[in-house]
């Protein structure tokens, strides 16, 4: 019993529940970078348009929204140009949605690799979030180009100091997607049902987020539902920064940030707890 302390590592049935093992993830940072790279390279090998696909998706999504919701249904955009308004919403929302969707099946899609070799499993979802972040960056660039174009054409756009919160918003979106995704992926190892729930749940959730309808245009009766959605604060603040329309409140941002912190910690703990034996049940 006495020489137990002299060993550098040990393998035991259960780890401490709240051991986040962030140091271990740091050790594998090179792997993280390589996974991101692999994601990118493999995505566009043997395509003609290559990275242009990053632009095509949001452009079409925005165009359809501008025609259907802005042109036909004449929904309010709080005075902002519809194209910019929807593109802002879509760009931000897609980042969160992609993070959530692609991290939520980490265990099931990587079972083959995870079954053969050990590395901190959290590296996988983290790499997904980072590669989505790059994709988001490209989307944001597209948005900024259009934004500058509209500004030059003399549209009143009112960018304001709230834009300084942008890094925080990006972190919140990424980590919320990551945290929820890790939680879901840990649970899908046993119960596959959740996977389907996430698939369409993400789509539905968009309508409870001010991507299409600004918070101000939502009837008071439904506002609590929207306010309870932690993504509302992020999207609303994101748009506020660029257009100075809609609502900005520290409570909303604080709620989103708090929710994200909890979701991420719970997600990571459950994820780390699952990674040990998931291969037996997946």
């Amino acid at each position: 019993m006495t020489d137990k302390e002299t060993y550098s590592s040990s393998i035991t049935p259960k780890d401490k529940l709240f051991d986040l093992r962030l140091g271990e993830i740091w050790q594998y940072r090179d792997l993280l970078v390589l996974f991101v790279r692999r994601d990118f390279v493999s995505k566009f090998k043997q395509t003609i348009l290559g990275p242009l696909w990053f632009f095509i998706q949001p452009i079409f999504q925005t165009a359809v929204m501008a025609i259907v919701f802005g042109g036909m249904a004449k929904l309010s955009t709080d005075g902002a140009p519809p194209i910019l308004f929807y593109l802002a919403g879509v760009t931000a929302w897609n980042y969160f949605a992609n993070c959530l969707r692609s991290t939520s099946n980490t265990f099931t899609t990587n079972a083959g690799l995870f079954g053969k070799v050990y590395f901190p499993r959290a590296v996988m979802p983290l790499s997904v979030v980072i590669s989505n972040l790059i994709q988001f960056g490209i989307g944001l660039l597209l948005f900024l180009v259009l934004y500058a174009y509209f500004a030059l054409r003399g549209y009143p756009l009112h960018p304001n100091s709230t834009l300084l919160l942008m890094p925080l918003l990006i972190i919140i979106m990424g980590f919320m997607g990551l945290g929820l995704g890790m939680l879901v992926s840990a649970m899908t190892t046993r119960y596959r049902d959740l996977q389907y729930l996430v698939e369409f749940g993400v789509q539905l959730l968009m309508y409870a987020t001010p991507v299409i309808l600004p918070l101000s245009a939502v009837p008071a009766k439904y506002q609590p539902i929207m306010l309870a959605n932690p993504m509302t604060g992020v999207i609303e603040t994101f748009k506020y920064g660029f257009f100075k329309t809609g609502i900005f409140s520290w409570e909303l941002v604080g709620y989103s940030a708090g929710f994200t912190l909890i979701a991420f910690l719970v997600g990571l703990v459950v994820f780390n707890y699952t990674e040990k034996n998931f291969i037996d049940v997946v």
Partner: peptide
Amino acid sequence: LSKVTGPTTGRIDYNG
């Protein structure tokens, strides 16, 4: 041993 799956009971201690 390679930490792909965990043991049900018992332990392994190692160096390196």
